[in-house]
């Protein structure tokens, strides 16, 4: 488990990182927290020619309040974001989801941008960003651009970024005050990537009906899945058990989970519906609690 020889280049800023990636071509890889990439290199499953290290690019390590949204720099460490008072207030679902990412030691080192760029369809952060309809800010030779989450994740471990683009930040919409959030997962052990997971955010209007709902599932296909059909069932309706059951019933058609050694796809499909019910109910409880 010794990695093959690899080149190393330290980027001082984003422009330099982009230049290095352009120079070294498709075999170069960006090194952020290294929590996924380095093990893959030790297995020689990843064999980059050069590592472009972003760890000295201090300008990407931030959490910023933009009023209607929250901007998180790509090199912000997961543990810092998880414990940030601003995140707790502006995007509580992000803090909640981060608690399920690996263990504290992983999150001390792991970055928000690293997890998103790695694009594991079972991981929490891609699912969360997909569910909240976030956008990914990337920068390449032609300058910056923004990609909607649902267009960013295009396959397992594959994103819409060009080889010479760098993920710089993720923007998450600030949800209305009183929104309840929940993360429901089935993991074999604490800290494992979940077999299947659902994130939910629900806001109730003055009449008690759902006026905002965001739902997404992990571990159910090649990319995280925003559960639009389930959202459509719930929005505008009172959140009765019946309505929630109807919403959950839409999940089976929306996902095509794979089989793996931990669970057959049919289990994941069924559990996605069940977790959706549980997540929505928890989110509603919390929403009422904070209203």
């Amino acid at each position: 488990m010794k990695p093959a020889a690899v080149g190393y280049a330290r980027a001082g800023d984003v422009q330099e990182a982009v230049a290095l990636l352009s120079q070294h071509g498709t075999d170069a890889k960006v090194l952020a927290g290294g929590q996924s990439l380095v093990p893959l290199m030790s297995f020689r499953l990843a064999r980059p020619s050069v590592l472009v290290d972003l760890n000295r690019v201090g300008s990407l390590d931030y959490v910023r309040d933009e009023g209607t949204s929250l901007l998180v720099g790509a090199m912000a460490r997961q543990r810092d974001v998880e414990t940030s008072p601003l995140v707790a207030e502006a995007a509580p679902l992000l803090a909640e989801a981060l608690r399920h990412v690996g263990h504290v030691t992983n999150r001390n080192r792991g970055t928000v941008g690293g997890s998103l760029a790695h694009a594991d369809p079972a991981a929490e952060l891609p699912t969360l960003v997909t569910g909240l309809g976030g956008e990914l800010l990337v920068e390449g030779p032609a300058g910056p651009r923004s990609i909607a989450a649902e267009n960013f994740f295009v396959g397992p471990f594959t994103t819409a970024m060009e080889y010479n683009e760098v993920l710089t930040a993720v923007r998450l919409p600030r949800l209305p005050a009183g929104t309840g959030v929940a993360v429901e997962q089935l993991a074999r052990r604490h800290g494992d990537l979940a077999m299947v997971g659902v994130v939910a955010a629900v806001h109730l209007g003055p009449d008690g009906s759902v006026d905002l709902v965001r739902l997404a599932a992990s571990g159910v296909g090649p990319v995280p899945v925003r559960l639009h059909a389930a959202e459509a069932v719930l929005v505008g309706a009172p959140p009765t058990d019946e309505a929630i059951d109807d919403a959950a019933a839409t999940v089976a058609a929306a996902v095509r989970p794979p089989d793996d050694i931990h669970a057959p796809g049919s289990y994941r499909r069924d559990m996605a519906g069940l977790l959706l019910k549980r997540a929505v109910k928890t989110a509603i409880q919390r929403s009422e609690a904070s209203a």
Partner: peptide
Amino acid sequence: LEELVYDEEARLRTGSFRDYLLPTATD
């Protein structure tokens, strides 16, 4: 938790701690 899983082709599918699940203190 723990199983060394062989598939129908007798290939071992559990080649790391990501798939071979040892109980930890929390389990």
